[in-house]
Design a protein around this nucleic acid. Structure first.
Ligand code: MN
Ligand code: MN
Ligand code: ZN
Ligand code: ZN
Lengths: 151, 151
DNA sequence: CTTTTAATTGCAAATAATTTGCAATTGCAT
DNA sequence: ATGCAATTGCAAATTATTTGCAATTAAAAG
């Protein structure tokens, strides 16, 4: 089983991290479940929870267990390969860490998750923390909103 | 048993909401457990979780149950009497709703919770949501930080 | 103050999300 | 190919919270 050659014309985001290599180099074994889960995370642009990742995973590897999904998410989080989110109410949801930080707007009617960034807000947060004598290690900003009624 | 007369000199925050009356007027029965819990919430300025509220409550009423704490928190939340927070990791934590919105900075070493407000950030959030076609219904902003090392 | 009755409570059991112990399996360095 | 620690699947345990139900009680009515 050779790695598929890059298909010309197929958009492969430049600079996409090679998690498999990163993990291997860090001394982490690349097992079938881990490869499956990594692929699922790389193929999606939404924010699936553990159960959803599990459902998608068993389509490829029916013997893979939910425990392994949880264990793998923890491993990937510790390695900085993914981000874990805990949106209001529901279970933890995950997404690949693409390097660039962003925050989320959740549509309270549909559950849709929209990503956004704001350098201004990030700067203000730093400023506030500093004025309180703190350095921010991480933060969480979630906007819960409803689509604006048509004019 | 008459209500204690206001003690002159005793600082009774002006405009503090009379939750007992508000609830009674809304048709909610004022029971012993509820009175106990309301008093605990009014006496603290931290953010206790259900178990901590329970522990404080049974000092006054040993028969009060944890179930009732949970049920009461839900009732108070629905009535807008308290705010429920879900800081990273731990169980839900509560605080009386004093009307003025604020956000939190959590000291990741000590667990201390520091409150702050920023009109600028609030305004930016509205602006961002609007630009995405949304109206904010509520939001969550938590800064997790570490005390700045003495320069 | 007694009666009346629906709201409320305590307790135990149920849920939901996640974690963990352990024996069997497997990646991967020799 | 071999050896063994890392990893996995499964079941059971944990943590936080919710719920069914019979007993209790707040407060409306008399
Ligand atoms: Mn995201
Ligand atoms: Mn607060
Ligand atoms: Zn941010
Ligand atoms: Zn805010």
């Amino acid at each position: 089983m050779t790695a598929p050659a890059p298909i010309p014309g197929e958009r492969e985001p430049l600079g996409r991290r090679d998690y498999e290599k990163e993990l291997r180099d860090a001394g982490v074994r690349i097992t079938r479940p881990r490869r499956t889960i990594l692929r699922i995370l790389s193929e999606t642009d939404d924010h699936p929870d553990a159960l959803e990742i599990y459902r998608r995973a068993i389509r490829t590897d029916p013997s893979l267990s939910l425990s392994t999904v949880y264990r793998t998410m923890k491993l990937l989080e510790d390695r900085g390969a993914i981000q874990r989110h805990a949106f209001a109410g529901g279970p933890a949801r995950f997404e690949q860490d693409h390097g660039a930080h962003h925050d989320h707007l959740i549509d309270i009617d549909t559950g849709d998750v929209i990503e956004f960034t704001s350098d201004k807000i990030e700067a203000l947060q730093d400023e506030i923390a500093r004025s309180l004598g703190y350095d921010i290690v991480h933060h969480r900003l979630e906007l819960y909103g409803r689509k604006r009624r048509k004019r």
